[in-house]
Design a protein around this nucleic acid. Structure first.
Lengths: 245, 245
DNA sequence: CCCCAACCGTGCGCTAGCGTACATGATTGA
DNA sequence: TCAATCATGTACGCTAGCGCACGGTTGGGG
């Protein structure tokens, strides 16, 4: 067991010491560079990624050119649930959305460990369920909620996963996440700024009034957050406290 | 319990005889009655359902009144992946969309059997992955594809799961699946009828020109179908293993 | 320190689908 | 058989967001 990097990833931190020790030697830190592609749609996923800081984005590209974020993965989750479920290739593109750092682990070791039915298995299964819930919510959200509300939702979800109130995110990038025109983001974000909820200049977004932003967002933010919070209930997200079977 | 009902459900049919025999005594046939609710959002899921015929629909309801189908489950799948993933309550409402019949199994037995890591575990995991892919595709589809294409997609997916070219489905029901107004469905379905792809009268839809309908549908239909087909590749979806009359 | 590339603001005509309302045809059960 | 109910057709003004185009601003590298 070599020296581990600092682990902020909640799934890894929730593992009992023995389990973490077992997989520790397979973990390799990787920087998350904004815009860098970590997995391509239809291609084999070589590693499972556990973000410590920053944010990874799962993007679906349509043949006719449209692109949209299917889910975002931060320190509460991992990239690689499809491998866990027995599918070798990634159905989506995986790209870093907010700069940070992750640890990754070759898929074969990830599978071997999760097949043991321990805490890792349990947490990854639980996270998969949260992803399903989140996807279902997003299906409805995209259909019924307007751009400003969806934009607020996305900013809140991002805020939850970064440290501090300021992060870098261009409107161009936001427009891909939301599946709308860049110009549309300008209008929606402009409204949120005018309302005093956020401020931004050249890709630097600051959450000024989080409570206000929450009123502007649709219910979907809360629904997904609760689902993710529920994952770690009972497990103090710290290495040694875990009574999961 | 005694003799099993005829099993058309592809997951159950793909199980080795020993496994099927083990769970057979827990299986109970249930009629699928259109509009009947089989699980409610936020409430415990008591059984896993394996449709033999007909279709079950997973519906997400928003607080502000919107409703939309998140996925449809036919004989290729099951209802209950969340239980499989360690979550007791259903995140969505489950309702029958096309009349038919399913077999169901109490969740505790479903969990016990799938925990053994046999064929059932493998297939349910694989199906969960397909659901995730399908959800991701639907997120993009709802954002970028117009109503007529989405309507065609839905009709094709339904056609795949029923026997024969005619099935009962009201425009009202279709409008919920698609998350649009009933009047919108009239227009979209009217266009498909005018083009000679389908015909319908009072809730009885007939697929007249399937190839034509496929040209009208978006790519999403194919993407999801291939994912579902892939599930059973190589597995002994063989008739002789299963034909328990 | 200045320039240039990245980022953001805005305008305008356009369209899909909405909300609402009302009318007509089909099916069914008393 | 005939209402009552269910299912479908259609119309009309309305709005969010699109596609496109262009101009303005900012900040970091040379």
């Amino acid at each position: 067991m070599g020296s581990l990097p600092i682990l902020r990833n909640k799934i890894l931190r929730s593992l009992p010491a023995a389990e973490l020790a077992r997989i520790g030697s397979y973990l390799e830190p990787v920087p998350l560079v904004v815009g860098k592609i970590y997995a391509e749609e239809g291609e084999p996923l070589t590693h499972a990624y556990f973000p410590n800081t920053g944010l990874m984005s799962l993007i679906n590209h349509l043949q006719d050119g449209g692109s949209i974020e299917v889910a975002a993965v931060g320190q509460e989750g991992l990239v690689g649930v499809n491998a866990f479920l027995g599918v070798a290739t990634s159905p989506v593109q995986v790209i870093a959305q907010i700069e940070g750092e992750a640890v990754r682990m070759p898929v074969r070791h990830f599978l071997a460990e999760s097949a043991l039915g321990g805490a890792l298995h349990h947490l990854v299964a639980r996270y998969t369920s949260a992803l399903l819930t989140s996807s279902g919510q997003t299906i409805a959200c995209n259909r019924f909620h307007n751009l400003e509300a969806r934009c607020a939702r996305l900013l809140l979800a991002t805020h939850d996963r970064v440290s501090g109130d300021t992060f870098r995110l261009t409107q161009d990038f936001l427009s891909v996440m939301l599946g709308v025109r860049r110009a549309g983001v300008t209008v929606a974000a402009g409204a949120l700024q005018k309302a005093g909820f956020i401020s931004y200049t050249h890709s630097r977004i600051t959450i000024v009034d989080r409570a206000g932003l929450e009123t502007a967002a649709c219910e979907c933010y809360e629904v997904v957050r609760e689902e993710l919070d529920g994952m770690f209930e009972g497990t103090a997200a710290s290495p040694q406290v875990t009574a999961v079977k």
